[in-house]
Design a protein around this nucleic acid. Sequence first.
RNA 1: GCCGGAUUAGCUCAGUGGUAGAGCAGCGGUUUUGUAAACCGAAGGUCGGGGGUUCGAAUCCUCCAUCCGGCACCA
Length: 637
Amino acid sequence: MVAITLPDGTVQTHDAPVTGFKIAGAIGKGLAKAAVAIRVNGDLWDLTRAIEADAEIAIVTRETEEGRALLRHDAAHVMAEAVKALYPETQVTIGPAIEHGFYYDFSRKTPFTPEDLEKIEREMHAIVARDEAIAREVWEREKAIQFFKDQGEHYKAEIIEAIPVKEDVTLYRQGDFIDLCRGPHLPSTGKLGKGFKLMKLAGAYWRGDSRNEMLQRIYGTAWENEKELKAHLFRLEEAAKRDHRRLGREMDLFHIQEEAVGSIFWHPKGWTLYRMLEAYIRRRLDQADYVEVRTPELVDRMLWERSGHWEKFREHMFTAESEERTLALKPMNCPGHVQIFRQGLKSYRDLPLRMAEFGCCHRNEPSGALHGLMRVRAFTQDDAHIFCTQAQITEETKAFCTLLLSVYKDFGFEDVVVKFADRPDVRAGEDAVWDEAEQALRTATEATGLEISMNPGEGAFYGPKLEFVLRDAIGREWQCGTLQVDFVLPERLDANYVGEDGGKHRPVMLHRAILGSIERFIGVLIEHYAGRLPIWLAPTQVVVATITNESDAYAREVCETLRKAGLRAELDLRNEKINYKVREHSLAKTPLLLAIGSREAENHTVSLRRLGGKDQESLALEEAVARLSAEAAAPGL
RNA sequence: GCCGGAUUAGCUCAGUGGUAGAGCAGCGGUUUUGUAAACCGAAGGUCGGGGGUUCGAAUCCUCCAUCCGGCACCA
């Protein structure tokens, strides 16, 4: 007999051995049906695996995140079985569950085609319909290696060789397909159901290393039922409608063309948005006691050699030749800022010195990395460097975090997490200094109440860093802000200040940005708002549209009044129906529309319609102007 | 950079070897309209670029560019 303790504390006794399947059945038929695995003393087990001793258990059901992960893992195995059945010459490698689905990496000479994907998916449905039992087997290590080698599965053999000796080598058998796997799995392929779909083909390097063979990855999505699958596909369509590249064209904000790959042609409307954002962040920095500077874009290689960029960052830099000198477009502003810092003597009384620049940087990003506004070769950071003493790091970091959170809040980003990247293996500076810097960042972030996740060993070679990740309206994460402590650059470029003791001292530099790149942040905003920008950022804030041309004169007057009040107003006097105009300006995502007909002209009123709204509001012109200009005010003014 | 796919009118997309098409937008006209598409008409193309196969290429082959999806990269 074994005593099985359920999550609610009740104890069942069973004849030993007992399986998870049996336990679930004893609790309820519905639970047995929804069960996908069992947690035994904290470990996930197959439902069919024998439990020999007393245990604390929990049944894992398919509609939980954990259950879906198992389901997705099964889907990967079913896909591998389908691929091996259709294309026996293919080698299988690894196939994990991922967010929303799964993938499997295959090695095969001829690439898969989209048509193959359809075939594989059909075969998967057949395997599910056959409801093959999935059985766990523990194999002797050498036997397993030989088994896979005999099958020509060299990657699998390599994986087994890497499994620590004390761990069991477990294989899972379903139909004729045997795969190395840690498990657990559902009891049979039928349990996968129909809630899956193959999504895309992609290349992926073996073990994620670009020096290795490129494998073929097939991505799929999998859910507990078809309804959830459909809901997911719908969400993908909705997300695609927010794509900033599409909205950028539809809203006439910007374009990119072949002759300037990775650089943005800002159209008048897009540039208005850019200017508003820049003006906003400039105001916030002014208020936070930053000074703003501007440094050269084209700088002699001598300076990059001194700063270390020529050695560490050369391949990402664009260069130019002039009069036998090699110049480079700046990829970062920091060396320029140190040059300004070095002008004249600096005293400890000048610290902390917060030096900001909306500098245009160029980086030669690999072509495959380019992506709309999100990853470009020419961009503008809301960059600043804080020159301070080591003792000031905590206070400055704290102030920065507070400022960053307040800025994000103005865009509706309330959900922010911090990734703390500490010392990498290869680094500059002494451990005692790193200890102090890491502690300073930790103290500061803890004081702001931010959620911190560790990114061990991911710091820059010159110091630890914080990365600020925000979550947008549909739950996607974007890393925008950053704060990096730098001990190296002040040293390399010989920045110093006169201390209280009258001696020379080395300042610490904090590299920091809130928006990151303005281009990229605009991309994030477009997607976050789905193009419906808040009034203060909207390129056109209000359209004055006539119903018939009898009201043209009054409409002009209204538009003029709005403009005088500082609103970005446009006039629509076209010979079109008001329905047509409403539709067009709605599609253009103009937040406000004032319809002007004979009634309005007579009473000196306007009829206000808000984007997406169903009804209108009649207002006296003066009241409308007062109200709308108040609504259009940028935050922090 | 690597793997795969795509590139036809301003936009979205048909067109599998035999005279380049549609809808929307734009343009010209008619219509004077009350909150998400009035009607009529004329126009609009080096089918991404180069080379090749063919009597004949948007269509087949090849090289290149760009874009898209991943991978790698993002100090």
